[in-house]
């Protein structure tokens, strides 16, 4: 759903015929039905070379390996956490994926037993904690496995988190990150847009955070339109004037 100022893409609905030209191949969001290619979503029709895609406008998050997600600890046992990642299944976080403990040595130089380390690691997150995690494995039979070991991963301890429509994430990021940069520059907020449709926002004051969230809501609502970057720029500037924000 990247921005293209010259092309207004058609809104299509499930079952709508996208083409009857046999030289096209159904891409994302489209299937072949006899001689025709039809849409399976409410979305934007998009032709890319031989492929016809439909970019959906709403939809649930489906985890993929390597996704950075924002999750919430919803259950703790002695050996693992369960993390709500805004998907069909809850994620699993095991102590050895929570903290890089296996290199640490106790004061005596003895390597701690893995049981000791696990017990130690299990103290890291409490029920209700929000964290940024990486999806390390996904398959159809078991729950997605997460890790918080890695740069910029781990517990979120400030700011606020809002939910957005997952298919609209690319629009909130913009072409080459232009939209997210605009949001950050104009609202002076820090932002993290996770793949599972949760957005972390932290600004100098709540007024800036509110403005940033309002701008994100506007992008979400107008994701299927053109000229969005200019409009968002204008919108934020105007609101800032109105509200006396720098």
């Amino acid at each position: 759903m990247t921005e293209n100022n010259h092309e207004i893409r058609e809104i299509v609905i499930p079952g709508e015929i996208l083409t009857e030209d046999k030289s096209f191949i159904p891409g994302r969001g489209a299937i072949r039905q006899g001689d025709r290619i039809i849409s399976i979503y409410i979305g934007l029709k998009e032709v890319r070379g031989k492929y016809i895609n439909v970019v959906p406008l709403r939809g649930k998050y489906r985890p993929e390996i390597g996704d950075k997600v924002i999750g919430k600890i919803v259950d703790i046992t002695s050996v693992k956490w369960r993390v709500d990642i805004n998907a069909k299944d809850t994620g699993i976080l095991k102590p050895r994926d929570a903290i890089d403990v296996y290199d640490k040595r106790s004061q005596r130089g003895r390597k701690k037993s893995s049981r000791e380390l696990e017990a130690e690691a299990m103290k890291m997150y409490e029920l209700g904690d929000m964290l940024i995690a990486n999806v390390v494995s996904v398959d159809r039979v078991s729950d997605p496995v997460l890790t918080t070991v890695g740069e910029s991963l781990g517990k979120i301890d400030e700011g606020t988190i809002i939910g957005i429509d997952v298919p609209k994430i690319p629009r909130i990021i913009g072409k080459k990150g232009s939209m997210i940069k605009l949001l950050k520059d104009l609202t002076t907020c820090r932002l993290f847009i996770a793949k599972n449709g949760l957005v972390w926002v932290k600004g100098a004051t709540s007024e800036y955070e509110k403005l940033c969230i309002e701008a994100i809501r506007k992008i979400e609502r107008e994701a299927h339109t053109t000229g969005l970057t200019d409009r968002i720029n204008y919108y934020i500037q105007e609101k800032k004037k109105e509200r006396g924000l720098k």
């Binding site: 994302r28 890319r48 492929y51 970019v55 932002l191 993290f192």
Partner: peptide, 20 residues
Amino acid sequence: EEIKEEKEDPSDTKEEEKKP
């Protein structure tokens, strides 16, 4: 993380091509 996010996200275009 913010830098990474910006770097990663343009890849979305690529991803869409992979999507089929």
